[in-house]
Write a protein that binds this DNA or RNA. Structure first.
Lengths: 191, 191
DNA sequence: CCTACCGATCGGTAGG
DNA sequence: CCTACCGATCGGTAGG
């Protein structure tokens, strides 16, 4: 049972890396099996289907973003600090699970219909919450006057690339880049 | 001959849209044929292979970026204006060919080995040219002190999402968002 | 541009 | 977790 659970986790981890590198569709169960070190059919003792792996990766990531958003909303901090916390949330998740985040960002469109619909609902609710915070900042005059939809896209895309450098850079270099990203967003957004 | 050339262009256009929507690997020759309105095997009267379509889309896009970069480098403008021109270059290409740009951004990893190597060389040369301009601005003190590699990523990722809104927004709304993106980058980057 | 077709590979199952 | 296997689908070809 414990052995089996470890195997399952191993399959998810190996798959996330493979999906990141080759994409979900081009990654085969045979590839995954080889990386895990078992026969392809043996994968099905631990998981139900290839789709289940993608679902698990995407939904786990979505949950982490959602949990972080709840924490930010429930905090009694000001708009500026809330935005900084959200930037840190994205950066933390991306640097802790670079492969999962890439799959979450780029492969979610291959989710089966039911889970795809759920995923898109979660995403759009997350975006609404984020934009709500931005809108307050804009109305208050703390943030540059612009569409909150644009501000949202600018923030999330400014943090959407650092995870590709996890393997290439040292801890110190990553910390430095984090700082530069945050300063760039704050400078561009706040008055 | 002219009919055939139009067909070829039609195949490329239809494929770019399909690749954008479903991804390259999940798009089949049968899907493309159906969208064009011919039998799958008939595609091969106009193109050599599925890979050829991807190569054409990616390399055409790469060429457009490269041409734009040459124009900017050869201009006698200051650093600030060169950066603005490069932002406009990215935005122009993205808004004129939203499907191709998405394929160029997300599907290039599926290029066959030879073209993949060529593509990565072109990309890294483009990045070097871009970072060279940024470095001069940083040294001169016109740009906030930061790694030029970070500055490069921040700029290209700030403009990497507008093309997803081409179908949803009006011309006027797109122009407004362009302005907001440019102001955000300039504010975040320049002193 | 079509009809007819093929070898390769895919995700997954049966049975142990 | 393995051996053996299968139906479906893929990119592509032959020949007209």
């Amino acid at each position: 049972m414990k052995r089996s659970k470890n195997r399952k986790e191993e399959i998810y981890a190996v798959s996330a890396k493979l999906f990141r590198k080759r994409g979900y569709v081009a990654s085969t169960m045979r590839d995954i099996a080889e990386l895990v070190g078992i026969e392809p059919s043996s994968l099905y003792s631990h998981i139900k289907s290839k789709e289940e792996i993608l679902i698990k990766i995407c939904m786990t990531c979505a949950q982490e973003f959602d949990d972080g958003m709840v924490r930010v909303i429930q905090s009694n901090k000001g708009i500026h600090q809330k935005i900084e916390d959200l930037i840190d949330l994205h950066l933390d998740i991306a640097l802790n699970k670079p492969s999962s985040v890439t799959v979450f960002n780029d492969e979610w469109k291959h989710l089966p219909e039911k889970e795809l619909n759920e995923f898109m609902v979660i995403r759009s609710e997350y975006a609404s919450n984020f934009k709500e915070i931005l809108m307050i900042g804009i109305k208050k005059g703390e943030i540059v006057s612009m569409s909150e939809s644009t501000a949202f896209q600018l923030i999330i895309n400014s943090v959407k690339w650092l995870h590709f450098y996890v393997k290439k850079l040292s801890e110190a270099e990553l910390r430095e880049k984090r700082k530069e990203i945050k300063q760039f967003i704050i400078r561009g957004l706040f008055l």
